[in-house]
Simulated assay, not measured.
Amino acid sequence: MPQHREVSVNGITMHIAEQGEGPLVLLLHGFPESWYSWRHQFEPLAAAGYHVVAPDQRGYGGTDQPSDVDAYSIFHLVGDVVGLIEALGHKQAVVVGHDWGGPVAWHTAMLRPDLVRGVAGLSVAPGPRGPVPPLVAARERFGDGFYQIYFQEPGVADAELNSDIRGAFRKTLAATSGEGANPAAAPLAQAGGFLAAMPDPETLPGWVTEADIDAYTEQYQRNGFTGGLNWYRNIDRNWELTAPWQNARITAPALYLSGDRDLVRAFYPPEFMDQVLPKILPDLRGVVDLPGCGHWTQQERPDEVNKALLEFLGGL
């Protein structure tokens, strides 16, 4: 079982869950999640001889939630990872990220290659820095109803999601999983809000229980969803800040995993995996495709994810 404590990192107090001893493996969650999304990874990775640490990232769960939207840039998020590695007494780490944790992991490997022995991303792959701000491109491609556009106005999505935290988790986790009725519809926020297209499921998918929903709901009682939404409110700012790394490659050994029913896969052109990704990741050790898996990769398919991670770690 993972142990829990708080550490001072980059000017904030961060809650972490950890288990095991050995080389450091950091597990970075996405939205809307917490350390708990990695609950199936602690035991296998720790048993294999690794110090496994999953933080609540900035603004989430038991970690501080700065009030300033500007405090959630990609530099702040990478800074938290750098500070965490030092606070844990390690010189380097393998950094694994799911969803929003993916960009944090990829950018940590790109900006601080001296600290990253290996990097793995679940669902979200590293992409080239485009010629226009991402939200401009997203609006042109998906329209004003795109969820990332809807998330931009402070207080709007916050109020919707915070009004029924438990319901928000039940709907989001079910609708965008591999067992969801229409995962492709999830990226579009309807007139009624982000959750409008997501039915409240009578029964949850087999990979998540009502007790899991209870755990997430309890963790979100402190901070709600605003901290996580503030990550989205820095998307275009991150594009501006990372201009010096235009066309930069990520040279650490790398692994990418995703489900073929993951809504994020629709964001990438057909040639992305074969032609674009290997140029960004010259030491790409594997691309793992999980048939029938939706967005919640390590929760939906823990055995396959653990197997792939252990093989990747063993090869470093």
Rank of each mutant, 00 (worst) to 15 (best):
L290D: 04
G79Q: 05
E311Q: 14
T226H: 05
S177D: 11
G286R: 09
G180H: 04
G59Q: 01
V95C: 07
C293N: 08
D262F: 01
T63I: 02
A186E: 12
G228I: 00
P278V: 03
L255N: 13
G192L: 05
H76K: 02
A137M: 09
L77K: 01
T108F: 00
P244R: 04
A175F: 01
K91P: 04
L277T: 07
T242I: 11
G101R: 12
R39C: 05
W106R: 03
D236Q: 12
P44L: 15
H29R: 15
P113K: 03
V119N: 05
E218N: 13
Y256A: 15
N230D: 14
E240F: 04
N306C: 02
M1L: 08
L313Q: 11
A54W: 03
N10D: 12
Q148N: 08
L111T: 09
D68L: 02
V52H: 10
N230C: 06
T297G: 06
A252L: 10
L27T: 15
Y36N: 13
G59R: 01
L316G: 15
T251A: 15
Q221G: 11
V78M: 05
E218Y: 05
L313G: 14
P187R: 07
F272W: 05
S177H: 04
P44Q: 15
D236P: 11
Y216H: 02
R170P: 03
T203E: 11
W35T: 13
A48C: 09
Y220E: 10
A186Y: 07
A71W: 00
D80I: 00
W207M: 06
G167I: 05
I235F: 06
E311D: 15
R237G: 10
P199G: 12
G315Q: 12
V94M: 10
I250A: 08
R265G: 12
S123Y: 00
A48M: 07
A46E: 09
G143K: 12
L173N: 05
E179L: 00
W100E: 06
Q221Y: 03
D114K: 03
D99A: 01
F225E: 13
G180Y: 02
D289N: 11
A308N: 03
P253E: 12
R301E: 15
L281S: 06
V69P: 01
V52G: 14
A17Q: 08
S67I: 00
L290V: 01
E300P: 00
V119S: 06
F169N: 05
V7E: 13
K307A: 15
R39I: 05
D262V: 04
Q92F: 00
G22Q: 10
I12D: 11
V116S: 08
R237A: 12
M14L: 09
Y232N: 11
Q3N: 14
V136P: 02
D303W: 00
A157F: 00
A168I: 01
N182R: 08
V53S: 11
E271R: 03
L111Y: 03
V156K: 14
G286W: 02
L88H: 08
Q19Y: 04
Q152D: 10
A71K: 02
V96A: 07
Q299V: 05
S177L: 02
R285G: 08
P126M: 10
S37L: 12
G83C: 06
L284I: 04
L88G: 08
